[in-house]
């Protein structure tokens, strides 16, 4: 099964007995149904699906308005870039509404268009920036395990959050892990492997890169602990720090384009630990304007160098 097929299935599962929820957004009820994301929701769950006009500011505000009046909704957004048009609502409306602790749920499910070659105006992957601006809970979904956890816990629950999906992963075979060793209660991070040599923490949508690094480590006879960090804001890092204190090496991988990523916070925490001998923070290269040209838009790791640096 591919990533989008699985997410679609999980959405339908989570909405099965939630008839009152309104699912809305551009093209959610026609054509490809946002590349298959919203396909079958109306038919299979009984939720109302509203195909809407192209008016993101209004649509974000309307989500809060429904919340104000006790109706839960999900706004499926084809591209995270378009949420820029709704920022006033994200901040000013949400700050008002949240004070009254609404019992209804509002979720923005945004596709992060990170599949490359879109150009400078259509490839924003900075989920963390949207979350930071009003301290909005935010989660990135990268694989079967975090999809189950995050959709199950957050898709419909009192309050507001943004859930990000990676367009790059849409058509790809769903990434799966044999087990979840531990996880943060809200799904802020999940641990999938436990190894003695290196701790790897993958932020935003960089779990495929983390898996690649694990394979490269295996070739060298080394084992790693792998964490996906799904939260777009800093969370309680202690278990990850404790793991890194044991391995003595942490590699933090982050494919986000933002300056403002929670990975910076984790790295700062790691710096204070004597037992962590090496900290490798892998981020994107912004040294020239080249990142604005249409390009593959993928964080490419030099695993050989990373392993060399981490195991120094």
């Amino acid at each position: 099964m591919n990533y989008v097929g699985f997410v679609n299935q999980e959405l339908k599962k989570a909405l099965k007995d939630k008839k009152g929820v309104i699912v809305f957004g551009q093209n959610v009820g026609t054509g490809s149904c946002v590349s298959g994301l919203s396909r079958g929701i109306e038919k299979e769950t009984g939720c109302r699906v509203l195909n809407t006009q192209n008016s993101e500011n209004t649509l974000v505000g309307a989500g809060f308005g429904m919340m104000r009046n006790g109706v839960s909704s999900i706004y499926i957004m084809k591209q995270l870039d378009f949420l820029l048009l709704g920022i006033d609502q994200l901040v000013n409306t949400y700050n008002y509404i949240r004070v009254f602790k609404p019992s209804a749920s509002f979720t923005i499910l945004a596709v992060v268009v990170d599949n490359g070659y879109q150009g400078m105006q259509s490839s924003l992957n900075n989920l963390a920036d949207f979350c930071s601006i009003a301290r909005i809970p935010g989660y990135a979904i990268t694989n079967r395990r975090d999809a189950e956890k995050i959709i199950g816990a957050h898709l419909v629950s009192p309050g507001f959050r943004i859930i990000g999906l990676s367009q790059r992963l849409f058509g790809r075979e769903l990434i799966d892990f044999e087990q979840v060793i531990s996880c943060e209660a809200d799904g802020g991070w999940l641990q999938y492997t436990d190894g003695a040599d290196v701790t790897i923490a993958c932020f935003n949508f960089s779990i495929p890169q983390g898996r690649g690094l694990i394979e490269a480590l295996k070739d060298k006879g080394k084992e790693a602990s792998l964490f996906s960090i799904n939260s777009s804001s800093p969370v309680e890092w202690s278990p990850i720090i404790a793991n890194a204190c044991q391995t003595g090496a942490i590699v933090v991988i982050d494919d986000i384009k933002s300056v403002n990523s929670p990975s910076v916070d984790l790295v700062a925490r790691a710096r204070g630990e004597e037992k962590i001998r090496t900290i490798t923070h892998i981020t994107r290269d912004f040294s020239s304007l080249d990142w604005l040209r249409p390009n593959a838009d993928e964080l490419v790791l030099n695993n050989k160098n990373i392993i060399h640096q981490a195991l120094k």
Binding site: G29, N51, N54
Partner: peptide, 11 residues
């Protein structure tokens, strides 16, 4: 049209 939505399907 807008994407795969006709006018009456969206507004």
């Amino acid at each position: 049209w807008s994407l795969a939505s006709r006018i009456h399907e969206r507004r």
